[in-house]
């Protein structure tokens, strides 16, 4: 098994005919993903990559039975695209865009409250269940099927951890990028909970960064609710307070926000904390063997 996306997932791409969307849709298909079509308003009825293009997500879902959407529209239009997917009944919505206004996401989350859907992102490389379903922009060749769940805020640091795992012969059930924005669709707790319920996942690597309480909240939740071990790392030990480190969400605004404060608390709560980012894979191997 896996979490959120699997080999039976039917994926549509919003913003399908755009250059990036096209490239990454093809990459996903090469990795075994079932892409069933896409949406570009005004281009309904056309064909793209041999698949149908629809004007609305509603039509796409009705005709293809899609249950996952990858959103590749630019930030100013992304919030509307997410709500369109939610309204059409899509169960997993993956939002790649980096730079969605925060207040747009505040409204999206309110809209999503009664929709029973999972929003992955925004500002994420996406989600991948290796060789079964990939919705996003990550380099699929570094991922291999396996027994470890990976969840991270950062994209490239997710790649870094996965590469370290691969070199030691460990693969992934699913790798989820929850994104670097302060208001995002899915938090660590939701993903940890899914990994706990997934019979194939044996352990989880959680990669956080400075800013916000969610890594510690997740560790607290894991202590109460998880039987599987969690390895944790928080990036930004050397980051100065008050400065936004690239990601809109990565800013130290109080003492509890620093990487060390978070890692100390996570350790107290039973997470296997890695202090050296080069040793994420090593630590995972030690904990899981």
């Amino acid at each position: 098994m896996s979490v959120f996306v699997h080999k039976h997932s039917k994926v549509i791409i919003q913003g399908f005919t755009g250059q990036h969307a096209t490239f990454h849709a093809e990459e996903s298909m090469k990795n075994g993903t079932t892409v069933v079509g896409g949406v570009t308003p005004g281009k309904g009825g056309q064909e793209h990559l041999g698949l149908p293009v629809f004007d609305t997500v509603h039509q796409a879902v009705e005709k293809t039975g899609a249950d996952v959407s990858g959103i590749f529209v630019p930030p100013p239009f992304a919030a509307d695209a997410i709500m369109e997917a939610l309204e059409a009944g899509v169960g997993v919505v993956v939002v790649i865009a980096d730079g969605i206004p925060v207040q747009d996401m505040v409204r999206v989350k309110r809209y999503a409250a009664d929709k029973n859907a999972i929003i992955i992102g925004p500002n994420t490389p996406g989600i991948i269940t290796p060789d079964a379903c990939k919705v996003g922009i990550m380099p699929s060749h570094i991922y291999t099927p396996g027994r470890i769940g990976v969840v991270s805020r950062s994209g490239t640091l997710n790649y870094e951890a996965v590469q370290q795992m691969s070199e030691l012969g460990m693969g992934q059930t699913t790798s989820v990028g929850i994104g670097g924005d302060p208001v995002n669709g899915t938090d660590f707790v939701t993903v940890l909970s899914a990994f706990e319920d997934d019979p194939e996942t044996e352990a989880v690597i959680m990669i956080g960064e400075i800013g916000g309480p969610q890594e510690v909240d997740a560790a607290r939740w894991a202590k109460e609710n998880m039987s599987k071990p969690v390895v944790g790392f928080v990036a930004g030990v050397s980051a100065p307070p008050g400065r936004r480190m690239g990601h809109a969400g990565a800013i130290i605004s109080g003492e509890a926000d620093t990487a060390n404060a978070k890692m100390d608390l996570m350790e107290e709560l039973g997470v296997h904390v890695v202090r050296n980012p080069a040793l994420i894979g090593e630590t995972a191997r030690r904990v899981f063997s």
Binding site: G155, T156, L157, E160, G180, F233, A235, V237, A250
Partner: peptide, 12 residues
Amino acid sequence: NGAGLAMATMDS
């Protein structure tokens, strides 16, 4: 490349 990896590089 990437904010998270940039921070992790500084940390390393």
